[in-house]
Design a protein around this nucleic acid. Structure first.
Lengths: 196, 196
DNA sequence: TTATACATAGACCGATCGGTCTATGTTTGT
DNA sequence: ACAAACATAGACCGATCGGTCTATGTATAA
């Protein structure tokens, strides 16, 4: 913990801008030049502060996931029953993905971008997708305890299904806009898992 | 229809090899050099026969979708009830996506790869994802007619959900292998839509 | 003052990108 | 024999890639 002089730019804010670029364009589609411009810092500062492109990307993934998992948890703990919260969340996600220019999820977009042989990145994306699944699992467990789920369905399995479904909808939303969106996929899923 | 001399290599077989490369590595991750090697033809022949990279990619997408939609339809029309066929298909898809090195679906992978501003490619991917949805819709309609579906669920909505769900599982499967696969996501979906 | 750690701009590197073009066969039909 | 349409290999193009490095300036701490 050497005190030393502090960085002369806001490293968190710059990283957040990097997140936006990777989110919009994916790893391969993002150049270091574009990152420099978006982050508002010079090439030397970029490499000195965040390492190389891959290392910067991994930092961006961590930051992105922290933000969306926190956001997800908050939205799943608003007023109303667990299933009410879930229904509302899915509805909001759906309309977000339906917007023209929707970019999907950084995790999914880059899971597609990286070579499947790249074990290190796969491991990190896997871990972070797991955090999304966990947020779904929590709310489904609460719903189960309150008897809101259909008999015989498993919260863990449902959480996995919802994680996959949201990733798929985020992906499909990249090429489908509000005129053609499968805007009842989530509602359909909700109707299925509710207790009669 | 000028008769003229025929190509001295199998243009279909070469295109099929291009499909494999785009499937494995995505658009940005695929170089023309890699395509030349995989297709076994020279650079000049490649450009003369298929145009530029983008045009070759679009041809590859069309070919890929033709193949998998045909395959999907066949697998949904085997012996047994419509829902039996669907259940079997989802089970097979699931174990395929769970295999280490599973590459997902070319459509989804490249939906993530392309900029959302690229309307032409988005339109083509959208159309071809629609063909997948249509295959699901057909079997779900048949199931509905035979009373196999839960009351009140709509085959169209379910088809959209399954299309999104399979895309998501294909994507997630790229970074999750058989040790950690959400291998009950599909079973869970099936259990939900069956009539009690 | 001096040393240190930061910042900046930008030259420079080798490699690779998508794409064009020249040169040189080779097969085919007339 | 000859022309047309194909094939090949590979030189070449400008642009961009990720990444290094030099030169210069600046704010802070001792």
């Amino acid at each position: 913990m050497s005190p030393g002089p502090e960085k002369q730019f806001d490293t968190d804010a710059a990283l957040e801008r990097a997140v936006q670029v990777f989110w919009a364009r994916g790893y391969e589609g993002t150049s270091m030049s574009a990152l420099m411009v978006a982050m508002g810092i010079g090439k030397k500062s970029l490499y000195d502060t965040y390492g190389n492109k891959r290392s910067l990307f991994l930092k961006a993934v961590a930051r992105y996931t922290d933000l969306i998992v926190t956001d997800l948890r908050n939205r799943l703990q608003r007023g109303g029953s667990p299933l009410d919260n879930l229904r509302r969340l899915l509805c909001e996600l759906e309309s977000g993905y339906a917007k023209a220019g929707s970019q999907g999820c950084l995790l999914g977009t880059n899971a597609a971008d990286f070579d499947t042989e790249d074990g290190e990145v796969a491991e990190i994306l896997r871990k972070n997708l797991g955090r999304l699944e966990e947020a779904f699992f929590e709310v489904l467990s609460r719903a189960d305890q309150e008897g809101e789920l259909r008999d015989g369905v498993d919260p863990r399995d449902l959480a996995r299904m919802l994680m996959c479904l949201t990733q798929g909808a985020a992906l499909v939303g990249r090429v489908i806009d509000e005129r053609t969106i499968p805007n009842s996929a989530f509602a359909s899923a909700m109707a299925l898992l509710e207790a009669p």
